[in-house]
Computed example of a mutant assay.
Amino acid sequence: MLRIKMYPARNGDSFLVEAAGAFILIDAGFASTFQDFVKTDLASLSRDGSRLALVVCTHIDADHIGGLLEFFSSNGPEPHRIVAVDRVWHNSLRSMPLPPSGEEGVEGKLVLEALRRRGFGGPAAQGPISARQGSSLARLLWQYGYRWNEGDGTTCICQDQQPLALSEEVSVEVVGPSRARLESLRSVWLKEVAKLGYKGGEASADLLDDAYEMWCATLPQLQEPKARMVSANSNLRLTDIYAPDQSPANGSSIAVIITSAGVRALFLGDAWAEDTVARLQAAKPATGPILFDVIKVAHHGSYHNTSPEMLATVDAPCFLISTDGSRHGHPDFEVLAEIVDRPAPFERRLIFNYETAGAQRLRAHASRSGTPFSVHIADTNWISIGCKTQ
């Protein structure tokens, strides 16, 4: 069995997974998410003699990384940590090393200050995440000596790596990103900081990690298409409106499959649908979709990250949708409808962590295939994911 806590992270993501006694934290929403919800549970784990086997920062976006910055700032060095952490997966600039070519210099400091003035994540982040200015997650992991990306943080987490075995029963497989997506994000970053006046070297020093993470945290809100009003035309289907995500930060999102004694969970972060489909189709059976026991829907149910091809490739009896609906109109109803309209030999549960317009509308929807489904609003208790999908 596998258990999941889906925290109320406003328009962000935060999940605590228990897999056969191994605990995995995937994102931590905003700083307030960590302080109000996650911190108490981690302290409880520690008192019970447990530890975090893995912490995953899916990508550098304020609604995913903000709470992790708060966690690692307060968790500090050994031996007085809130909870012990075995390893952390996080792709920062340091994880994509570049040839050293000089010091950052005055220009680098000016770039960092320019990015600070923009704020870390903008208004949705409940104020700038800057109580400890200059402390990127990369710098905190380095400073406090965490096992980072299976070493010192100078390699990236991407599709190239072998599944990580946390025990004989539990493994974590990286579905994305590809190395090419990470390199693309880095290239965009280098062009942007050049516009801000950075003329120093490309070495992945602390200063550049700080500036890189601050810039990435503002990138998605600058590039994501404007919010689309829920369509008044109830006949619109996902095929009518789907448009691929173009945000390089979302394209860098770490997506994983957690397997626990045969139970499989697919956590998609904010990953691009095309990348996920390409990775999974190599293992696709001859007929029908790949079945998981639970799927965390990508990017809060955005119609830019769940494609018709994605839903032809994967299915599950349980779907998790994390958002309060406060930004961009997430989740998009057409995504929810397409999930439940497909024929299946099982009933689907769609679990939301907030009562959203999409959830309300879905309750009144009749599946086109007649496949039964139910809508649930989670609290902060464990969600049990049962026996192996057949």
Score class of each variant (00 low, 15 high):
residue 338 E to Q: 12
residue 128 P to N: 13
residue 107 E to N: 13
residue 101 S to F: 10
residue 265 A to G: 08
residue 107 E to S: 15
residue 15 F to M: 08
residue 69 L to N: 09
residue 354 Y to M: 03
residue 260 S to Y: 04
residue 188 V to E: 08
residue 171 S to Q: 11
residue 312 A to V: 02
residue 115 L to F: 07
residue 164 L to A: 09
residue 313 T to K: 06
residue 32 S to T: 12
residue 315 D to Q: 09
residue 45 L to T: 02
residue 352 F to V: 05
residue 310 M to Q: 11
residue 35 Q to G: 05
residue 44 S to Y: 11
residue 62 A to C: 10
residue 362 L to G: 04
residue 119 G to A: 08
residue 135 S to R: 13
residue 56 V to N: 07
residue 144 Y to M: 04
residue 145 G to D: 08
residue 239 T to W: 08
residue 13 D to A: 14
residue 16 L to S: 01
residue 221 Q to I: 05
residue 182 L to C: 02
residue 181 R to I: 07
residue 293 D to G: 06
residue 326 S to G: 12
residue 80 H to E: 14
residue 122 G to Y: 04
residue 271 A to S: 15
residue 273 A to C: 11
residue 66 G to V: 03
residue 181 R to D: 13
residue 124 A to T: 14
residue 211 A to Q: 08
residue 33 T to E: 05
residue 209 D to N: 14
residue 371 T to D: 00
residue 299 H to P: 11
residue 357 A to V: 14
residue 82 I to G: 00
residue 167 S to F: 05
residue 53 A to F: 07
residue 58 T to W: 09
residue 29 G to R: 09
residue 278 A to L: 12
residue 217 A to S: 14
residue 256 V to E: 01
residue 41 D to P: 14
residue 357 A to D: 13
residue 282 A to G: 13
residue 225 P to I: 10
residue 358 G to Y: 03
residue 126 Q to D: 14
residue 46 S to I: 03
residue 376 H to R: 02
residue 116 R to T: 06
residue 61 D to S: 10
residue 351 I to H: 05
residue 87 R to G: 09
residue 96 M to H: 02
residue 372 P to N: 06
residue 48 D to L: 14
residue 208 L to M: 12
residue 245 D to L: 12
residue 252 S to G: 08
residue 47 R to I: 07
residue 289 P to K: 02
residue 44 S to G: 15
